[in-house]
């Protein structure tokens, strides 16, 4: 009995030793020489492997960053400037800070604004729905509401609001990785500058139909009337195909466009005070008077 136990231990130990030696030799023979900085950079990265940077994962980003002459084409949207500073430190170079971004939904076709005109009972996938038809409302540009963006978000930052049937973006969780932007077949999500203290102005509509059609489809649509375009003193608004667009690099957050928009398609968020439309309109009127 004892001899059996002894032999078992001896044989197993020998087996273990031999296998360890083989493993060691193999590891030595097939060792791949790699820039040690890749590991360091990878450690600095968030490790979400979200692909938001445009590379397959954090490791791919790291090996590409090591090989690149500078870091202009490399930015980790999840980690932001802080992480990029660390990456730059590993590589021994300096980089400029980038303004933080956030995903924004350019549609405000909630149930109350945009009545449903038919029932969709096919597969709950925006991609499938978009291929079939213009959707269950009269707006062929708006949100389809099947939540492809929700499924695409790795950070749990997007959720469907059951009342409006529109996705909502949680600012604290959104990392601006851009997965939702790629997932949306209607291209309704846009990465925009987060703005000072989160304050930003944007047109929450993508309808390129003519005014009456857009209005018929949705109460909160941009009807391309041009009021905002005429009011803006900073040249931040572009009007194209019956649709206004605010260039965030030029926007000074004066909120005049928001006040004059007849349909409420322009949204301002995170402002400390609620917009006093009458006051702003008065201000604009006075300025126009003075100009005359």
């Amino acid at each position: 009995m004892t001899s059996v136990i002894v032999w078992t231990i001896v044989i197993l130990s020998c087996l273990g030793l031999i296998l360890a030696i083989i493993l060691f030799l193999v590891a030595k023979k097939f060792k791949v020489e790699e820039d040690p900085r890749i590991d360091e950079i990878e450690k600095a990265l968030p490790g979400a492997n979200c692909g938001g940077c445009g590379y397959a994962g954090c490791r791919a980003f790291a090996s590409s960053a090591v090989a690149a002459p500078n870091l202009d084409a490399h930015f980790c949207p999840v980690g932001g400037n802080e992480v990029m500073k660390k990456v730059a430190a590993v590589l021994g170079i300096e980089i400029a800070e980038k303004a933080p971004q956030i995903a924004v939904l350019r549609c405000n076709g909630s149930c109350t604004n945009r009545p449903r005109t038919n029932v969709y009972d096919g597969l709950q996938s925006c991609r499938v729905k978009a291929q079939l038809y213009s959707g269950d409302t009269l707006c062929p540009y708006g949100c389809l509401g099947c939540g492809d963006c929700v499924a695409a978000c790795q950070f749990g930052a997007i959720s469907m609001n059951p009342e409006t049937l529109l996705p909502e973006i949680d600012e604290t969780k959104c990392t601006a990785c851009g997965a939702c932007v790629r997932a949306c077949p209607r291209k309704l999500l846009e990465l925009r500058a987060k703005g000072p203290r989160g304050m930003r102005e944007y047109v929450a509509c993508s309808n390129r139909d003519k005014g009456p059609d857009a209005r018929k489809a949705c109460k909160a649509s941009c009807i391309g009337c041009g009021m905002c375009f005429k009011t803006c003193t900073h040249g931040a608004i572009v009007l194209e195909n019956n649709l206004a667009y605010i260039d965030f690099s030029k926007c000074k957050l004066c909120r005049e466009c928001e006040a004059v928009c007849p349909t409420g398609a322009i949204h301002g968020v995170n402002f400390p005070k609620e917009l006093d439309k009458a006051a702003v309109k008065e201000r604009i009127a006075k300025r126009k008077e003075a100009e005359k």
Binding site: L132, Y133, S134
Partner: peptide, 8 residues
């Protein structure tokens, strides 16, 4: 004008 699938 919109066709039967709603596309212009």
């Amino acid at each position: 004008r919109k066709d039967l699938a709603g596309n212009p």
